[in-house]
């Protein structure tokens, strides 16, 4: 029996999770929420993590009903992400590892291509095509010629970034996340506005679409031609269709029959529904995406650490640094 605790704070969420042999015992999280219309900056985000780290740690231990002595290994995110929040979180992980005299493992985010093996292990998917969609990344990754390869990606901004920035135009709340609020509004959208749709081979581009909707949205809403709900709906339908299209192309290219969505945007129910329909039409299988794979969280890091600890690997204290990329 191995119990692992994971610390994740590479962006605006601070999460600490405890895992016992694949079972999530606790996974509390606290998100740094900025006022509507604003993004999060490294320094303020780091302050948020510093302020909440100990409370969340206490909560994680209490919910899991474990004491520090039960824990076998401490895991944390090395990167990629924002420097200041990463360092603040790593400091807590290093401190408790030394206080409790436990080994420590530092991780690059499990969904970087080199580590994507992890996603496969966790879901039991055999050879999935992976759509990795978050605030910082948009990639279609598939296994081919004995390696994970990026088949398609955004050639400018990430899909999560595009959604977040549109949420700022509409002054939507950042609580719990801008993308979540777009998703809720989109449910009541009816009128479809045609938006620029940019797929180039297996790559996508969102910047043209974003400029277009950023410019048009205030006027369209003011004139009463479209409601904010309609615009959220149209935006989601368009960007998700682009993502599904490139995923399908990669699947056709590699002959893959399994698909997995990871990353924060992967929590979106409409995206999952569209992916499910595409998979069904191809006779392929969509692997269930739950929060363990979606938002940045501690359990994900603990799970990755648990796998590594079992194979006998730990990180020497002198190598427990952070990296922004």
């Amino acid at each position: 029996m191995v119990i692992a605790i994971g610390f994740e704070g590479s962006a605006n969420k601070l999460g600490i999770g405890i895992i016992k042999d694949g079972e999530v015992l606790s996974n509390p999280r606290h998100t740094y929420i900025t006022p509507p219309g604003q993004g999060f900056l490294p320094r303020d985000t780091a302050k948020h993590h510093q302020k909440h780290a100990l409370d969340i740690l206490r909560k994680a231990l209490d919910e899991a009903k474990v004491t520090p002595s039960d824990i076998d290994v401490v895991c944390y995110t090395k990167g990629p992400g924002m420097g200041a929040p990463l360092v603040s979180t790593a400091l807590v992980a290093r401190t408790v590892a030394q206080l409790w005299r436990k080994p420590i493992i530092g991780f690059l985010n499990p969904y970087q291509p080199s580590d994507i093996e992890m996603g496969r292990l966790i879901t039991g998917a055999d050879n999935p095509t992976v759509l990795y969609v978050s605030g910082g990344n948009t990639q279609v990754i598939a296994y081919s010629q004995r390696r994970y390869r990026i088949f398609g990606e955004t050639i400018d901004i990430a899909v999560g970034n595009c959604l977040d920035r549109f949420a700022r135009v509409l002054k939507l709340s950042n609580d719990p996340s801008p993308g979540y609020n777009i998703e809720q509004l989109a449910k009541n959208g009816k009128k479809f506005l045609e938006l620029p749709y940019t797929v180039k081979g297996m790559d996508v581009s969102f910047s043209g679409l974003l400029s277009y909707i950023e410019e048009k949205a205030p006027e369209l809403v003011e004139k009463g031609e479209y409601t904010p709900e309609d615009l959220c709906f149209s935006l989601q339908e368009t960007v998700f269709a682009m993502l599904i299209e490139i995923t399908e192309r990669a699947m056709a290219h590699c002959g893959s029959q399994e698909v997995l969505i990871v990353g924060g945007v992967g929590c979106n129910k409409r995206l999952q529904e569209m992916m499910g329909k595409m998979a069904e039409e191809r006779g392929a299988k969509l692997y269930a995406t739950d929060e363990r794979f979606c938002i940045d969280n501690g359990a994900m890091i603990a799970q990755a650490g648990w796998e590594m600890y079992k194979s006998g690997q730990t990180t020497p204290l002198k190598d427990t640094f952070c990296t922004q990329r």
Binding site: F192, E194, Y197, E237, A241, E273, M274, K277, M278, E281
Partner: peptide
């Protein structure tokens, strides 16, 4: 037809 796409987006594409 792609059933995952909004019908008017699908037709126009």
């Amino acid at each position: 037809k792609k059933s995952y796409r909004h019908p008017s987006l699908d037709q126009s594409l």
